[in-house]
Structures are given as structure tokens and as C-alpha cells.
């Protein structure tokens, strides 16, 4: 997929664990794993909003577009 999720990068920058992020965002660790592994088909604005709030970043820091090879 051309959209890359950089949650792992942001987690490392903020020195935060996946479990803590899941708890702060209010999603299950399984759903966070779906997001991190790029299996997600869509991200709700409410989830994106909560992610940005928890990681103190902009949507562009989490989502990245790369052209398909």
C-alpha cells in the first residue's frame, strides 16, 4: 500500500510503549497492531485525532505517502 503508517517511529521518538499508546488512544492492542503492520484498511478521524494527541504530533508525522513501485 502507498500509505505508510509511522506509529513505530513516533513511539520510539516519544519513548512510549505500544500498550501505553493503545490505552491512551482507547483502542485495543490488536487494533494498534493492525495499524502498525499496515493491515488497516482505514483510520477513523477520531482515532487519528487521539493518536496525534497521545503522541503530540501532526497527522503527517504518522501517515506518509510513498509511490507504489
Amino acid at each position: 500500500m502507498a500509505i505508510i503508517i509511522n506509529v513505530d517511529v513516533m513511539l520510539a521518538k516519544r519513548k512510549m510503549s505500544s500498550g501505553e499508546l493503545a490505552e491512551r488512544v482507547g483502542i485495543t492492542p490488536a487494533n494498534l497492531s493492525i495499524l502498525k503492520t499496515g493491515k488497516a484498511k482505514a483510520v477513523r478521524f477520531s482515532t487519528l485525532n487521539a493518536l496525534c494527541k497521545a503522541l503530540d504530533c501532526q497527522p503527517g508525522d504518522i501517515l506518509e505517502y510513498r509511490e507504489d513501485e
Partner: peptide
Amino acid sequence: KTENDFTV
């Protein structure tokens, strides 16, 4: 359903 299941 698949799309819904993989919507976070």
C-alpha cells in the same frame, strides 16, 4: 466486513 474489521 473486512473493511470494517480493519478500520481502526
